[in-house]
C-alpha cells in the first residue's frame, strides 16, 4: 500500500440523505472510513443503519449526497458495479441462493466479481480456500437450504469474501446466534480485518461491537449522534438516551 492510499479515506460518505415518502431515513449523514479500519455501526431499531448500508451497497438510490469509494464517485452505480469495485455485504436476514449448494453460491461470486483472467481451476481452488477459512469445507456440496443458522451466516460472509472485497459490510451477522457462535463469527471477522479488509459491522450485541471496533458510530432517527472510540461512544449521554429511551 502506498502512502497516498493511506491518507485517502477508503469510503467517504458526504451529506447523504434518503427519504421514503415523507419519512427521512437518513438525514445529511457524512463520515469517512479509512483503509483497514474496523468500523462499528450501532443505533436503535429503525435508526437508519441498514438504510445506510443499502445506500453504500447500491440497493437504494439516494436523494442527495454522494458516496465515494477509493476516490471514485460510485453514487450512480448499480450494486453489481459496486461489488466489482470491492464493496461486499452480508444481509441481516441471510439471503443464500437457495437452489444452489454452498460451493455454487461461492462460484457465483467468483464467476462475476473475481476478475476475468482467472481459470476455472483457480476459481475452484479459491473457493475451497475460502470455505476452509470459514470452516465450511465439509459443507461444500450441501444445499444452502440445509445449513444451520450459524453456517448460513458464515456462508454469506464466505460468498462476500469470494468477491475479493476491499470493504466488507456485515449486517448483524451475529443475530440469533449462541454466545459461542458469536465468538466464532467475531474471530472470523477479526482474521479478515487482519488481512487488509476494511470492515463495517452493524450489530446489536454491544459487547461484540465494542470488542471488535476501532471506531464506533451511533445513528438515531437517521442522524449521527456520536462517533469515536468504543468507550467514548458508550459514555456518550445521547447514546445512552437513544438506547434506553427517555
Amino acid at each position: 500500500m502506498t502512502s497516498s492510499d493511506a491518507q485517502l479515506p477508503l469510503l467517504r460518505i458526504a451529506s447523504l440523505t434518503k427519504r421514503f415518502g415523507g419519512f427521512t431515513a437518513l438525514d445529511n449523514v457524512s463520515v469517512d472510513i479509512s483503509p483497514g479500519e474496523r468500523f462499528g455501526l450501532i443505533g436503535p431499531n429503525g435508526s437508519g443503519k441498514t438504510t445506510l448500508i443499502n445506500c453504500i451497497s447500491g440497493a437504494f438510490r439516494t436523494e442527495a449526497g454522494t458516496v465515494l469509494f477509493r476516490d471514485e464517485d460510485i453514487t450512480p452505480l448499480q450494486p453489481h458495479m459496486r461489488t466489482r469495485r470491492g464493496i461486499a455485504r452480508s444481509f441481516q436476514i441471510p439471503r443464500p441462493f437457495r437452489s444452489m449448494t454452498v460451493a455454487e453460491n461461492l462460484m457465483v461470486a467468483l464467476d462475476f466479481a473475481a476478475g476475468e483472467h482467472v481459470s476455472v481451476a483457480q476459481r475452484h481452488d479459491a473457493m475451497m480456500d475460502i470455505l476452509t477459512q470459514m470452516g465450511l469445507a465439509s459443507k461444500a456440496n450441501v444445499s444452502a437450504t440445509q445449513l444451520s443458522q450459524v453456517e448460513l451466516r458464515k456462508m454469506e460472509l464466505a460468498r462476500a469474501l469470494a468477491t475479493h472485497p476491499k470493504l466488507l459490510i456485515s449486517d448483524e451477522a451475529m443475530a440469533g446466534l449462541s454466545s459461542s457462535e458469536v465468538d466464532e463469527v467475531l474471530d472470523l471477522l477479526m482474521s479478515l480485518a487482519s488481512r487488509d479488509i476494511t470492515i463495517i459491522m452493524i450489530e446489536h450485541i454491544m459487547q461484540a461491537v465494542m470488542r471488535f471496533s476501532d471506531r464506533v458510530m451511533c445513528l438515531d432517527a437517521g442522524k449521527i449522534i456520536a462517533i469515536g472510540t468504543p468507550s467514548e461512544v458508550m459514555g456518550n449521554q445521547r447514546v445512552q438516551e437513544a438506547y434506553l429511551g427517555t
Binding site: G58, Q78, F91, R95, P96, F97, A109, A113, A160, T163
Partner: peptide
C-alpha cells in the same frame, strides 16, 4: 432467480 438483490450484491449484472 433465487434472489435478485443478493445476486446484484454478489456482482451479477441482473
Amino acid at each position: 432467480k433465487d434472489d435478485e438483490l443478493a445476486a446484484e450484491c454478489t456482482g451479477v449484472p441482473t
